[in-house]
Computed example of a mutant assay.
Amino acid sequence: MSKPFDMELFLAGVLTGSHSTRQRHLQQARIIQAEIAERWQRETPWAWQRKHVVWFLEHRMRQHGDATRYYYLLTIRLLALRLKKAWVFNL
């Protein structure tokens, strides 16, 4: 039995800001992870490709407001920074 992926440990090096900001990013990162895992069976960010994140932004965030999409985009930028990927997204 393997241990579940620890998103907090994964993002620890790139999370900055107040406690509430860090908690928001962690919560959003866990939601992103769960959605991608459910749809694409990619359990960890190391297995993600850009298309998985684009799918999340375009399909799962479609019904949300601009402010919510913006905050999720900030979290995705942190994930990309941690993965050392040069992903650029246009909303």
Rank of each mutant, 00 (worst) to 15 (best):
Q41N: 10
M7Y: 04
E35N: 09
Y71V: 09
R82E: 14
W87Q: 04
H64Y: 15
S20M: 03
R30D: 08
D66T: 14
A47R: 13
Q28N: 12
L74S: 09
A86F: 04
L74H: 05
A67K: 12
R50E: 15
R24T: 13
W46N: 13
K3N: 06
Y72M: 08
E38F: 07
L15Q: 02
I36V: 14
Q27I: 01
R82Y: 01
L26F: 01
L11H: 00
H52Q: 12
Q27W: 06
Q28S: 05
V54T: 13
Q27E: 07
F10P: 04
D6E: 08
Q28L: 08
R77G: 10
I31T: 14
Q63L: 13
F56R: 05
I31N: 11
V53W: 08
K84L: 06
T21E: 03
A80I: 04
S20A: 11
G13I: 03
L79Y: 02
K51N: 09
M7T: 07
G17E: 02
Q23H: 01
Q23I: 04
F56A: 05
L83M: 13
R77I: 02
L9N: 09
E43C: 06
I36H: 06
A37F: 11
E38T: 10
F56Q: 01
G17T: 07
Q28G: 03
